[in-house]
Amino acid sequence: MPTPHQTPIPTQWVGPIHIIGNAINDEVRVPLATYETPLWPSTGRGAKISRLCGGIRATVVDERMTRSIVLEAANAQEAYDALQAIQGNQALYTEAVAETSRFARLLDMHSQIVGNLLFLRFECATGDASGHNMVTKAADALIALILERHPELGYGSISGNYCIDKKASAVNGILGRGKNVVAEITIPREICEKRLRTTPEKMLTLNTRKNHIGSNIAGSLRSANAHFANMLLAFYLATGQDAANIIEGSQGIVHTEIRDDALYFSCTLPNLIVGTVGNGKGQGLEIVEDHLTELGCREAREPGANARRLAAICAATVLCGELSLLAAQTNPGELMRSHIAMERHG
């Protein structure tokens, strides 16, 4: 098998970012791999704000990886009867998942019946791995067990798209897929004006008009943000993640308020799919290993803790870039002037 040709993507370290929360309390520099060079100083400006304002609070709200299967029955009644039996024996299926991996654990199961088709969406804990392959292996075992116990059902597919992987959807934001992380910061007026060259009022107005109303009339799906995808892609590439997962990862919401003459600014990212072990890591990609080590995500911790730390860092990085861009867009001409100065060199 030929060795893949590796072309390095320009990478710079940004920060440090001051982050507090239930997965990390630290100041960390963050690697971003991108051809969009203004992203580095822009995200760096947000990182500076994090250090001036007591830190970005990153809260990991939930974590799970999913795989949906589709089975076929003779008719909807038969599918429904089988579903009732499957749901009544969930402990059996929980045990089957646990036998497929040291870290896989069945958290929940959701279902949909369409005609004679039965869709089952399995949700699993996957330790420090993002878990794509882990949940697929578990789903294979579950299919075999279900078909053994329910010969009236037939195999449809190992992936029924009710998961849903690398496609824009509503279900992931509602039921969860990957890490659900909320990043928040409160910025005093003086810092808004001096460091971001804007005001809390301008930021609130822009977020409402651009991210919420503008995204709504464009038909965005569970999204109200300016450019989550930019920071996500750069972070994913630098840390060995499956970059295609920025499709669902960039579905997120910016929420702003004015509190006691300060700007409250938050980024909610319900579908961050990241891991510190597994595909993309430990395969001779020394630069990825170096990045994860520098981020403090190669420490001896309980299973899942390194991945939660990585997700919190990722969410805080997204907030830094989102905050800086929106601040620039409150001022006429600033966005283009910045790009010309930083990317086109005049």
Rank of each mutant, 00 (worst) to 15 (best):
M1A: 14
P4E: 10
I9T: 15
T11F: 05
W13M: 11
W13L: 13
V14R: 06
G15W: 04
I17S: 01
I20D: 09
N22I: 08
A33D: 01
T34H: 02
E36F: 09
T37C: 00
P38A: 05
P38F: 05
W40Q: 01
T43K: 03
R45C: 11
R45N: 13
A47E: 04
A47Q: 01
K48A: 13
L52I: 05
I56F: 11
I56D: 12
A58Q: 08
V60E: 12
V60Q: 09
R67T: 02
V70L: 07
V70G: 01
E72D: 10
A73F: 14
A76E: 15
Q77G: 15
A79W: 11
L83T: 10
Q84H: 14
I86E: 08
T94K: 09
E95I: 04
A96S: 08
A96Y: 03
E99F: 05
S101T: 06
S101W: 03
R102D: 14
R102K: 08
F103M: 03
L107W: 04
M109S: 01
V114D: 13
L120D: 07
G127I: 09
D128W: 11
S130A: 15
N133M: 12
N133R: 13
K137Q: 15
K137F: 13
A138T: 08
D140S: 13
D140W: 08
D140C: 12
D140V: 08
H150E: 07
P151L: 12
G154R: 14
G160N: 06
G160I: 08
Y162P: 03
C163Q: 07
A170Y: 13
A170L: 14
V171T: 04
N172I: 02
L175A: 09
G178W: 05
V181N: 01
E184C: 08
E184M: 09
I185A: 03
T186F: 00
I191C: 12
L196S: 12
T199L: 13
E201Y: 10
M203V: 13
R209T: 04
K210S: 12
H212M: 03
I213N: 04
N216G: 02
A218G: 06
L221S: 06
R222P: 02
A224Q: 09
A224M: 12
N225H: 07
L232P: 00
F235S: 06
L237T: 02
A238Y: 03
G240T: 00
G240H: 03
G240N: 01
D242H: 11
A244T: 12
I246Y: 12
Q251C: 08
H255V: 14
T256F: 14
E257L: 13
L269M: 15
N279V: 14
K281S: 11
G282Y: 03
G284M: 10
L285A: 09
L285P: 00
E286Q: 11
T293K: 12
E294Y: 02
L295F: 05
L295E: 01
C297D: 03
E299N: 07
E302G: 00
E302I: 00
P303F: 09
P303S: 07
A307Y: 02
R308E: 15
R308A: 15
R308D: 15
L310V: 08
I313N: 08
L319H: 04
L319W: 07
G321I: 05
L325E: 10
Q329K: 14
Q329W: 07
T330W: 05
N331M: 09
E334W: 04
L335H: 02
L335A: 10
L335F: 13
M336T: 07
I340C: 08
G346L: 14
G346Q: 09
